[in-house]
Design a protein around this nucleic acid. Structure first.
Lengths: 200, 200
DNA sequence: ATACTAGTTGACCGTTCGGTAAAATGCAAG
DNA sequence: CTTGCATTTTACCGAACGGTCAACTAGTAT
């Protein structure tokens, strides 16, 4: 079982950067197997289909984020609105370091996959939607605490959280289209100006 | 030559909805030819490569927008900030009608293609970037006129325009991930709360 | 020692991929 | 009537696609 988990995680490790830097359709199982040092038959022993692999890859990325930047950014010790600054900074530094290593801004793997596959595979779409839903709730908690602390004038925390998530994804999309992480640096902070008022 | 342009435009007409509703990689030239009633050899008479086809498709979508919703929205007769409302509304109604017909929110073809191909093809990336750059300048003009008219407190029109474009794309991305056009209706109007202040 | 099972191997499936080449067709100008 | 060019047809290319299968290996439990 030790060797089993190892094979499985080698497959995922080979798949992750490829799905992130290219696209779902453009990365073949054969290529993944070659780079993981695994036979195709073994691949299908662990993953019933390509979709199941990308599902696992999404989970790994999500865990990585939840335990990395996101955990740091949404540190309860920080004043609420500073957490949002932290998150934007983290996205900037991450995309910048990716560009330095890879030559390209790769953007957000969840956003990338969403726009590529969500009209073609409802299971993947639902998975990605759940990721976004979770991200939104992080924003929402933060906004609620900011309002409670008096740092932020009362507003519709639910919709504003969703708006902030949308803006964040949009900024990363534009940064990818310009292949320039500095765009995140310039535009990112404006996320805090977004407001959806309560009522109506 | 009449028949020639006809073949060419039948190819584009068959390709447009497919690239929009699925993805670049997922639509094959064979399928396009079948639906356009064209032989593959004819296809390659008009388009040197698949990339050249999608370039033409992007141009058609851009023209369609420029002469359709966008022309209506950015009508100089409207008060500047109302033009932005109009644009958001147009995006909402369009995605909603697409969903009614197609069963799915397809999102923005430029955003979709950007996230799929811009790390793999710099020519496509540059093309899409130019589309976004043009869209940004429409926002920018509008903001400048709003400031001049006193409707809007002075701000950095260039960065705010870019922020609005990013937000707009982000909202459409989330709407696609939830397959729900109403998200655009709920979140869209908050675009006007975005501000990047001048200076620094 | 045996039987079971998780894991691995490598060959193989039919299909589709983007793209090519050559021959045939239609049409217009000289 | 012919030359020339744009267009179209048809057959084809090698490579890659996602996925399957049966045989084999190795470790574990009885």
């Amino acid at each position: 079982m030790n060797t089993a988990t190892d094979t499985r995680s080698r497959i995922i490790a080979a798949a992750k950067p490829r799905f992130h830097s290219r696209s779902y359709a453009n990365v073949g199982i054969q290529e993944i197997c070659e780079n993981a040092g695994v036979q195709k038959g073994s691949f299908y022993h662990f993953f019933p289909s390509k979709r199941d692999l990308v599902l696992a890859v999404i989970d790994e990325f999500a865990d990585e984020w939840a335990n990395g930047f996101v955990a740091e950014a949404f540190d309860p010790a920080l004043p609420p609105m500073e957490r949002i600054d932290y998150l934007v900074d983290a996205a900037y530094f991450w995309q910048r370091s990716i560009k330095q290593m890879h030559g390209r801004v790769l953007g957000c793997i969840f956003g990338n996959l969403t726009l590529e596959v969500s009209t073609q595979d409802d299971i993947l779409r639902a998975k990605l939607q759940a990721i976004f839903s979770h991200a939104k709730s992080r924003f929402k908690e933060t906004l609620e605490q900011a309002v409670a602390a008096g740092t932020l004038a009362p507003l519709d925390t639910d919709l504003t959280a969703e708006a902030m998530l949308a803006y964040h994804e949009g900024v990363i999309l534009l940064a990818k289209s310009q292949n320039d992480p500095e765009l995140i640096y310039r535009l990112g902070p404006a996320i805090k100006t977004l407001r959806v008022e309560t009522g109506a």
